[in-house]
Design a binder for these strands. Structure first.
Length: 179
DNA sequence: CTCTAGATCTAT
DNA sequence: TAGATCTAGAGG
């Protein structure tokens, strides 16, 4: 079991803040995670698995460390890391990353993250252990964390739309949405 | 089969 | 503030 595996074997709302500062590595690119959002179990009406176990959501029930990549608004691919335990659908959405030499405006949104790193359909369902996409511990201490409500989940209603399950690194160029 | 809404982003 | 553009999932 790698450090990343043990790290992810916890509920998403615990993993998400701890994931700040960790790095994603793929195809020679490396990016530091600066904003995350938790989607937690079937009771969370904002979580795709809340409607049950279907072909689309099957991956959310897989081993922690599995990648859940899905199409959003017909345009964007969004990357999630599956957490917790097998059969417990819990995942962290990677909302923003930082890459040296890259304009932060190109990496401060979940759709931008996948575009920047070249992630898409073909990464859906693969596991970190394949090495195709790697999750590495922080190389430097992470900045102070801030948290706030999740984005774009008003439809889930209270209390789910109100949960402060989004975390980001303070002092980092603020994302173009409320917070 | 048809319909609808959506974990977004950009330009206007 | 609208438009781009694709699917899962629900309903008939």
């Amino acid at each position: 079991m790698t450090a990343a595996d043990a790290f992810l074997c916890r509920p998403a709302p615990l993993v998400a803040p701890d994931l700040l500062g960790w790095r994603l590595a793929i195809g020679g690119l490396e990016a530091r995670i600066t904003e995350t959002e938790a989607y937690h179990q079937v009771t969370d009406l904002a979580c795709h698995a809340s409607r049950g176990r279907t072909r689309r959501t099957e991956v959310l029930f897989a081993r922690p460390g599995t990648l859940y990549v899905y199409r959003c608004y017909g345009i964007h691919w969004l990357l999630n890391l599956v957490c917790d335990q097998v059969d417990v659908p819990s995942a962290v959405l990677i909302r923003a990353v930082a890459m040296p030499g890259v304009d932060p405006r190109l990496s401060n949104g979940p759709g931008k993250v996948t575009r920047l790193l070249g992630l898409g359909q073909r990464h859906h369902g693969i596991h970190l252990s394949t090495g195709e996409v790697r999750l590495l511990p922080p190389s430097v201490p992470s900045a102070r964390h801030r948290c706030g409500p999740r984005i774009g989940v008003d439809y889930a209603g209270a209390p789910w739309a109100l949960k402060r399950w989004r975390w980001w690194e303070a002092g980092f160029p603020v994302v173009p949405h409320r917070g």
